[in-house]
Amino acid sequence: MQLAVNILVLAAIYALIACGYVLIYRVSRVLNLAHGELMMLGAYMLVATASAFSMSPVMAVVIAALMSLAVGGMVYLFLMRRMTGEMVLAAVLTTVALGILIRGAVILIWSAQQYHPRAMLGWGNPVITLPGDARISLYAALLIMATVVVYGGLFLFLRFGRWGMRMRAAGQDPLLAAQRGINLHAVFALAWGLSTFTGALAGILIALDSGLDSTMVMIGLKAFPAALVGGLDSLAGALLGALIIAAAEVGVIRFIDPLLADVVPFIVLIAMLVIRPWGLFGTREELDRV
């Protein structure tokens, strides 16, 4: 039972992060390898707002999340916008460079020490005992809820929202979308903003649950196989992919070798690339488009 809960929590983490990869890839065919760093930046924003808004902790969390929304949009407007029309590789490498830049900047600003934003906000982290004697911390439970809400919201937004529809349209055929009068820069900036927002949400909740330092990037990188296993352009796929990766990871830690934890997602990824490179729910022709 505890095992199932652990898998669920980890899957929720991966899924929440993975949807950021999917959003950006789906709209602009760019693989954002700075997602882990952007997510970490979101968590560090909480450290900043926690000291600024120590009176109202909820406010601090909300503002930190909104700030990451803005950061994501700005990353597109000031940096990635210049890379549209360039080779895909150049765009991906730009995100790699951005990742390094953020990593350096975060350490420069906040130093390499570990933070505990929960303590800074004066919150506790009570353990909830579930039926079947499984235990889950409050923030892990919140994480699962956040994932459910985010995915539900994204599904509705992409299906029925006017801007969601435009995002789908731009992802399918950016040229035609521009010809129809859709402001591609606005759509892309929105995708980057939402992606960074969801990533930061994950980062903030993880930081609240178990503290924060620069190793958080690794979690972001491990969530990426989840997105790819499910199919890089499919949200439903990311959900399932996260579950598979999380199950594999928790299972291996429990039954085989904890040292494998950081590699398991990538082993699953390689297996997937060998069997079905476009992922579980991905579109097959995506492979030829890159």
């Binding site: 006017r162 349209a169 035609l176 859709i182």
Partner: peptide, 18 residues
Amino acid sequence: RDKVFPNLSVAENLAVVP
């Protein structure tokens, strides 16, 4: 060429236009 969004429905194709 490529004059419609193939994976969007007809109504959605019309709705995306600002």
